[in-house]
Nucleic acid binder design. Structure first.
Length: 794
DNA sequence: ATAGGGTTAG
């Protein structure tokens, strides 16, 4: 059609309007744009009706920006009166987004005096629902009520959907219950809302009620409930739904089938997931994303990456932000930083939107791969942050030994106005556990209680761990006793708590209680139990449980169990038995197994065996520095300085640096750290003076420094001073100076406590009449009135 | 319908 030519021939305005009209009726975007061009040039041809028609055409063609531009040029009275056009504009934005434009248009409509109709509300409410804009939705609900539109079935359904998506399920239910006629769509709104918020029980109850009301779930219902089933790990329920889908022929629907495979993946049933995937006729990007995610959830990470490549190469499907998120999670699970970095580069190069979720995924990858510098840099770059952002960085720090940083960031989070949630606290408490920062931990406990988190099993589990690692095993037990529901982690954490305090009998009692309560011990339970036996010298019990674990509980021992057993036997002085135990192992012992024996050789001063064990460790590649240190200590103790020096030279040549011994003490919520011979603390002078004073009293009571454990060949007096300024002594002394005389002192050390400090602290408890507790890398030492509860071997 | 944060383990 050569309309452009005809338009130039000086027709009268009314005939031109007719031509415009005809062009718009073709519903062709190209024609619309031609009319638009001419209207811009010949403003005299503008008529409100034409402009309205052009707006409609643009809406139909999904050109919302253009539609909106033309809409605004319609003169006021005509625009005001064309309610239908307002509704169309709002509906278009509510469908396609940006959703906030729909809400803005609604407000503009009301403010310019246009009365919304029953068609307006479902659309604007849908926009509120997509944005989870609770306040706006409530206001709009109020408007509809005042207009007497409350019984309109479409509005009610939209309201149910809106409240349910915002998580206000009580309000959703209120609207729902008032409805005269609830159809499948209204039920689906209720059901998908509770499913979206992970309320598995409620979702299933609603399904039953729906069927009792005589309605059958349709494919949308099924698609809505499958994520909740997956998250609730309800495999048998999921299979029932699958069967229902087959009966109703929903299973060939790509949305339902994708939901099914995702559900199987989340339930850990990879075989079923991939079977659904394989027989699917139509697969889209979401299907591939779900399958890749299923592989990752089931720990088949390299298979997931392989599938991703298959998708790109053989199936013509491009990456999407969601799939890239999954790929990042795969590298995270492999703790493969370079893989993660490559994906990060790809995200930048491909120009993917840097959404909050993508940022959080990247942050979590860097955090789990242990590069705190990258985490902090990314964190600072992120413009928008939410609680997940903070949770990722806090737990990332806590899991990578940066507990002090975790505390600082937790404080920053509170200043930023983002409220810590349940996951924040569960991720933060281990940082307190690690530092034995009881005051921070107790504050976190109070905050959790006030926020209503302490009814949750996960938070109580973290609290049990925190209190027992902060030396308060009694409070840990109180938390344990008051829990409404305990899971396997609760019992394991409590048993381990008793173990580190040398309370083996209590650990065994709890192990029995656990079985009476109907819980089946798992592999971790036995690690905790054997550890407890080992640290309380309960050799016979430990041996018995090791056998029972295999025979009665069908748990195949892992390396960790063997390590516990070698530790148990070795600690008790049964060095030969420990060695033959290792020789009988059905699998090859790793370095940690031999290290456990080497530590035992040190306790029982058996240099010959230590040398032999040390050679084995050398052959395996001595992964850690601790083994060199032990052997060198033993040679030193025997006065064999040359041998000790050779070990240290070998250690240096192989590139192993001794990690410095570090001790810390929490005073009024501030953690003070010390290394050996440290003079950097502001109160250093006082601390050293106090220590020297105490040394005089200690000597009077019979203390002799264990100078054989100084590893350089130096004069006695010098040895004494090297020992005197060990980090644990400095931290204890600072505690004595800073805390009231009735207060017990808790010091934490990153390595095992040294023999001399162990002896010295006993004397210090007598001199200062204080209780002193040291948590070293291995366990708790409770010093009281000149004795330690560890029984002097550790 | 697919992506982000959390508890026990020498």
């Amino acid at each position: 059609m050569s309309c452009a030519v005809r338009l130039r021939t000086g027709n009268s305005p009314s005939s031109i309007t007719n031509i415009y009209d005809k062009l718009l009726e073709t519903k062709s975007l190209r024609h619309g744009k031609i009319v638009h061009q001419h209207l811009l040039k010949n403003t005299s041809h503008n008529s409100p009706i034409l402009l309205a028609k052009l707006t409609r055409l643009y809406i139909t063609c999904n050109e919302l920006d253009l539609a909106s531009r033309v809409f605004r040029t319609i003169p006021y009275p005509q625009r005001k009166n064309n309610v239908v056009l307002w509704n169309h504009m709002i509906r278009a934005y509510a469908w396609k987004g940006p959703f906030d434009r729909a809400i803005d248009l609604y407000y503009e409509m009301v403010e310019s005096g246009v009365t919304p109709t029953n068609f307006t509300y479902p659309f604007v409410l849908k926009a509120c629902s997509s944005l989870q804009a609770l306040q706006d939705g409530k206001r709009i609900h109020d408007h509809a009520r005042r207009l007497g539109l409350e019984s309109d079935v479409y509005i009610c359904t939209a309201l149910v959907d809106f409240y349910a998506k915002c998580g206000c399920l009580v309000d959703a239910r209120k609207v729902f219950d008032k409805m005269y006629d609830t159809d499948v769509v209204a039920w689906n709104a209720m059901i998908s809302g509770s499913s979206l918020h992970g309320l598995y029980g409620d979702t299933m109850r609603l399904i039953v009620q729906m069927q009792e009301a005589g309605l059958s779930p349709n494919s949308s219902t099924v698609a809505a409930i499958l994520p909740a089933i997956g998250e609730g790990n309800q495999l048998s329920q999921g299979k029932t739904v699958h069967a229902y889908c087959v009966r109703r022929s929903f299973h060939s629907d790509v949305v339902v089938a994708t939901g099914l495979l995702d559900m199987y993946g989340k339930c850990g049933c990879l075989v079923y997931a991939s079977r659904v995937f394989d027989i699917m006729g139509v697969k889209n990007e979401v299907t591939w994303g779900a399958m890749i995610g299923a592989y990752i959830s089931c720990d088949f990470v390299s298979e997931a990456l392989e599938l991703y490549n298959q998708m790109l190469i053989g199936n013509g499907i491009c990456s999407s932000p969601v799939i890239i998120g999954s790929v990042l999670r795969a590298w995270t699970k492999l703790t493969d930083l370079s893989g993660g970095r490559r994906v990060h580069g790809y995200i930048i190069k491909a120009g993917f939107d840097y959404s909050l979720m993508m940022g959080n995924t990247l942050l979590s990858m860097y955090a789990k791969c242990g590069t705190i510098e990258d985490v902090v840099r990314l964190f600072d770059e992120m413009g928008v942050k939410d609680s997940v952002t903070y949770n990722a960085i806090i737990s990332g720090c806590a899991q990578n030994g940066k507990a002090k940083e975790a505390i600082v960031i937790f404080q920053e989070m509170q200043l930023s106005g983002i409220k810590p949630d349940l996951a924040t606290m569960v991720g933060f408490l281990p940082a307190c556990s690690h530092l034995a920062a009881l005051q921070h931990g107790a504050c976190a406990h109070c905050f959790s209680a006030v926020s209503g988190f302490t009814t949750e099993t996960s938070i109580c589990n973290a609290l049990i761990d925190m209190y027992s690692k902060c030396g308060k095993v009694d409070i840990a037990r109180l938390v344990f006793d008051r829990m409404q529901k305990r899971d396997i982690v609760s019992w394991n954490a409590m048993i381990f708590g008793y173990g580190i305090h040398g309370l083996g009998k209590e650990a065994i009692l709890l192990f029995h209680d656990m079985q009476i309560a109907g819980l089946r011990p798992d592999d971790v339970t036995f690690i905790c139990l054997l550890y407890a036996c080992s640290h309380s010298g309960l050799v016979a019990e430990g041996k018995k449980w090791f056998v029972d674990m295999n025979q009665d509980f069908c748990i195949v021992p892992r390396m960790e169990h063997y390590i516990c057993m070698v530790d148990l036997l070795g600690r008790a002085g049964l060095l030969n038995e420990a060695r033959s135990f290792i020789e009988r192992m059905p699998c090859d012992p790793d370095v940690c197994v031999w290290s456990a024996l080497l530590s035992a050789c040190k306790i029982h001063k058996n240099i010959e065996l230590a040398e032999e064990v040390s050679n084995k460790i050398q052959c395996l590649g001595p992964e850690s520095t601790g083994n060199f240190v032990i052997l060198s200590h033993m040679y030193s103790a025997a006065g064999r300085w040359d041998a000790a020096a050779n070990v240290r030279i070998a250690q240096r040549d192989l590139g192993f640096k001794k990690s410095p011994g570090c001790s810390w003490v929490e005073i009024n919520g501030v953690v003070h750290a010390f290394v050996g011979g440290d003079q950097s603390h502001p109160h250093s002078a006082e601390i050293y003076r106090k220590l020297e004073d105490m040394l005089i009293d200690m000597k009077r009571l019979g203390y002799r420094s264990e100078s054989s454990f100084v590893f350089q060949d130096v004069e006695e007096e010098e040895k004494e001073s090297i020992l005197l300024y060990h980090s644990e002594k400095l931290a204890v002394t600072f505690g004595i100076l800073s805390l009231g005389s009735d207060k017990p002192i808790l010091v934490t050390k990153n390595l095992r406590i040294c023999v001399d400090c162990h002896t010295a602290l006993k004397y210090i408890t007598i001199i200062t009449k204080r209780k002193i507790t040291v948590r070293d890398a291995s366990r708790f030492h409770h010093f009281r009135d000149g004795i330690c509860n560890c029984g002097d071997f550790w």
